Computed example of a mutant assay.
Amino acid sequence: MTISPEVTSTPEAPEAPAGAAALPFATLGGDRKGSTEQVALALFITVPFVALLAAVPLAWGWGVSWLDLGLMVAMYYIGCHGITIGFHRYFTHGSFKAKRPLRIALAIMGSLAVEGPLVRWVADHRKHHKFSDAEGDPHSPWRFGETVPALMKGLWWAHIGWMFDEERTPQHKYAPDLIKDPALRAISRHFLSWTILSLAIPPLVGGLVTMSWWGAFTAFFWGSLVRVALLHHVTWSINSICHAVGKRPFKSRDRSGNVWWLAVLSCGESWHNLHHADPTSARHGVLRGQVDSSARLIRWFELAGWASDVRWPAKERLEARRQNPSSEAA
């Protein structure tokens, strides 16, 4: 059974300016994916994933250095927070205002996660919120129905399959505010350059520190390939797992749930139920014990004067969105 849309309050993307569709930069790549892009996408999914599968036996066989682990963790959390704080909470939902240097830094950090150009990422996510778990949602796991076979197919679609859909979200409709910013438009257009830089930093550092090609290779394996694969699958799990299972202490119009074991790796994004109950909130982990490193960093940005007008969750607003105690478990 396919879920039909519900009429409810949800963040709307700003309307496109008149004539936006005619602008040469409006969609930053067109409204349909070509075969070349789909092949490139398959490679960027497959190669890092193979490295992730090989990580355990290779670590057992010839070990992993502290340098490799340090590069992997550092690059992982730079990219992860670039996505969670930048692409998601700031650019998509406007959870706070950022001074220009922080705005540019967040756009670059998110691009280093290798999850697609900024404008396209934001457009996809705004469309997801407009139709969350209903007809029109780009990546709902409930797309094919509620039976077990349908859900298994839907989980695959929500996790990876949707990215190969030829039709793209119209960026001039869902992200005209970003398209109009020349700096953000340039960062989005140069996604390939940020990808190359992201993959090159670990082997460059590893090679220079160890003064060896082997050091460069192991740093590339752990700091580039394994790191990208892990971050990709954690991010995609928010689309798939967090919309299929998890606790739901807050009222939302969809099936978003909290999955605690993804919280640290997702930088707080897996407290997904509150996010869909209150999408513009700068903090997702609002209950006792819910770790949300992204919210902590936003707080530090605010204290430093880099961020302002932060939309912290108010107690009254949270209580108004509370489910009945019997509805908390998925």
Rank of each mutant, 00 (worst) to 15 (best):
Asp165Ile: 04
Ala183Trp: 14
Gln171Lys: 09
Trp194His: 14
Gln171Thr: 10
Ser188Val: 07
Ala183Gln: 11
Ser193Asn: 11
Pro182Val: 10
Phe164Arg: 05
Ala175Asp: 07
Asp165Glu: 14
Leu184His: 07
Ala183Pro: 00
Trp194Thr: 02
Glu166Gly: 12
Ile196Glu: 01
Ala186His: 08
Ala186Cys: 09
Thr195Cys: 08
Ile179Gly: 06
Ala175Glu: 05
Ala186Met: 14
Phe164Met: 07
Tyr174Asp: 00
Ile196Ala: 11
Ala186Ser: 13
Arg189Pro: 00
Arg185His: 12
Arg189Asp: 06
Asp181Cys: 08
Lys173Pro: 02
Asp177Pro: 07
Ser188Asp: 05
Phe164Asp: 06
His172Met: 03
Asp177Glu: 15
Ile196His: 02
Ala186Gly: 02
Pro182Asp: 10
Pro170Ile: 04
Ile187His: 03
Glu166Ile: 12
His190Met: 05
Tyr174Met: 04
Phe164Asn: 08
Ile187Leu: 06
Gln171Cys: 06
Glu167Asp: 13
Lys180Asp: 13
His190Cys: 03
Lys173Val: 15
Met163Ile: 12
Met163Leu: 15
Ser193Val: 14
Lys180Tyr: 08
Thr195Asp: 02
Met163Val: 09
Arg168Ser: 03
Tyr174Trp: 11
Thr195Phe: 10
His172Phe: 10
Trp194Ala: 03
Ser198Ala: 15
Lys180Cys: 06
Lys173Ile: 15
Glu166Arg: 15
Ala175Tyr: 04
Lys173Asn: 06
Phe191Gly: 03
Leu184Arg: 08
Leu197Gln: 01
Phe164Ile: 04
Leu192Gln: 07
Ala175Cys: 13
Leu197Asn: 00
Glu167Ala: 14
Glu167Arg: 15
Leu184Pro: 02
His172Ser: 05
Ile196Leu: 14
Trp194Pro: 01
Arg189Lys: 14
Pro182Gln: 08
Ala186Asn: 07
Leu192Ala: 13
Trp194Asn: 02
Phe164Lys: 04
Phe191Leu: 02
Ala175Asn: 06
Pro170Met: 05
Leu192Met: 09
Gln171Arg: 14
Asp177Gln: 12
Phe191Met: 05
Ser188Glu: 07
His172Pro: 04
Ser188Tyr: 04
Tyr174Gly: 03
Arg185Ile: 10
Lys180Gly: 11
Arg168Leu: 12
Gln171Gly: 00
Leu178Gly: 05
Ala186Thr: 11
Gln171Asn: 09
Ile179Val: 15
Pro182Gly: 10
Ala183Tyr: 09
Trp194Ile: 00
Ser188Met: 08
Glu167Leu: 14
Asp165Phe: 09
Lys180Glu: 14
Thr195Ile: 09
Ile179Cys: 06
Gln171Phe: 03
Leu192Thr: 13
His190Pro: 00
Lys180Gln: 15
Ile179Leu: 13
Glu167Val: 13
Arg168Thr: 04
Ala186Arg: 15
Ser188Ala: 11
Thr169Tyr: 00
Ser198Thr: 01
Pro170Arg: 06
Leu197Cys: 08
Gln171Asp: 05
Thr195Lys: 01
Asp165Asn: 13
Ile179Asn: 02
Ala175Gln: 05
Arg185Met: 11
Glu166Thr: 14
Phe191Asn: 02
Phe164Gln: 03
Glu167Phe: 09
Ala175His: 08
Pro170Lys: 04
Ile187Cys: 05
Ala183Thr: 15
Ser188Asn: 07
Trp194Lys: 02
Asp181Gly: 07
His172Asn: 09
His190Val: 00
Met163Lys: 04
Met163Glu: 01
Asp181Gln: 11
Ile196Arg: 02
Ile179Thr: 10
